[in-house]
Design a protein around this nucleic acid. Structure first.
Lengths: 189, 189
DNA sequence: ATTTTATTAGTGAGTAATCACTTATTTTTT
DNA sequence: AAAAAATAAGTGATTACTCACTAATAAAAT
């Protein structure tokens, strides 16, 4: 554990160590319940260094969230570029596992912040972030001659959020292929 | 605002006032981010009274959660008693709106606790609480001659969780009948 | 190339404010 | 008068954050 942090510090710089320790702590025990002193202790740096690099606790959170969204953006772009409507639906269905299996801690953190913190919802508007995918999926359903593409799209995203929650709660990084297949059948015939 | 609390205290006793103020604060700004001094201030009681009635901050949280689950239990029992498998599915689909429209603050609180707090997950095992409904729904799908009732049930609950999240995020208490109808079609033909 | 000058990275000991919680005392109810 | 309910005034511990300072690195000047 502590050996691990020491190793991290050796190959990363201390700022990165703080960043990673904070991400781990924020996502596992919550932002409010994580003190800067604990972050410093686990990262094996002085507490003051946190504030030198990130101004304040919230600044540290913001950097973590911004990097997270930046890393996830390409997953969305890949779908936006797809032209086959059926493939758009299929790729979007695979999105939750793809994102969470590789960015679990970030996703858990942003999920908790979104549900709990009002100020966060202003700073990071998830609707705005997913809007391009939203319209892409809607148009896909339109192309597939779906009865009411708007309702179908909304239903689809409700499903997607449920699926993301399911994957988030199963700590093992297992791909729920069977479930995704079953969902698939309900949206594409 | 403060007039309201004063009115509450007049018709309720002070313990109930503390209870309600804490529920409101815990659900809107999080348990960790809510201090006992703020609860006391908003409830217009002395801070010590909180500890007299609820032992400690966690005791207050527990009473809130236990009452919440107790109030929600009858909603589940109603479905358990139902024998028509189709009706079981339909009633379960209506569950999220029924619960959240009437117990929004509690549901938001328990949702956040479940996602964030490990100790909470031990004390209040949501899986155990919903287990009777879980098997009831599984048997319903079995009765309806569904291909794989287990997968269908799991898919159904993923949907249900997504739906609950959707209703929770739309602060207006509007019944999403159109969406529920659309989901319905995907599970019953 | 070597010295001087800035800049950045990092520390450890503080700060006031706030935290959950306690104790002693007073008010209210029975 | 006794018991219960409520308050006011505390407690030590912890909080996010600042401060004065040093060590290391980079840039500029000689």
């Amino acid at each position: 554990m502590y050996f691990c942090e020491r190793l991290l510090t050796f190959i990363m710089n201390k700022k990165e160590t703080i960043f990673n320790v904070a991400l781990q702590l924020f996502s596992s025990q919550g932002f409010d319940n994580t003190s800067t002193s604990l972050i410093a202790k686990k990262a094996e740096v002085s507490e003051g260094l946190i504030f030198r690099h990130f101004t304040n606790k919230e600044g540290l959170l913001n950097e973590i969230l911004i990097e997270g969204f930046t890393k996830i953006k390409p997953y969305l772009d890949l779908i936006i570029e797809e032209n086959d409507p059926k493939k758009v639906i299929l790729l979007t269905l695979e999105l939750p596992y793809k994102i969470i299996s590789q960015h679990r801690e970030f996703w858990k953190l942003q999920n908790n912040m979104r549900l709990q913190n009002d100020k966060y919802r202003e700073d990071f508007d998830q609707n705005a972030f997913f809007e391009p995918l939203d319209t892409k999926v809607k148009n896909a359903f339109k192309s597939l001659n779906c009865g009411n593409p708007d309702v179908e799209k909304e239903t689809f995203f409700i499903f997607l959020n449920g699926l993301a929650l399911y994957i988030l709660e199963n700590d093992n990084n297992e791909n729920p292929v069977e479930l995704v297949k079953n969902i698939e059948l309900k949206f594409i015939d």
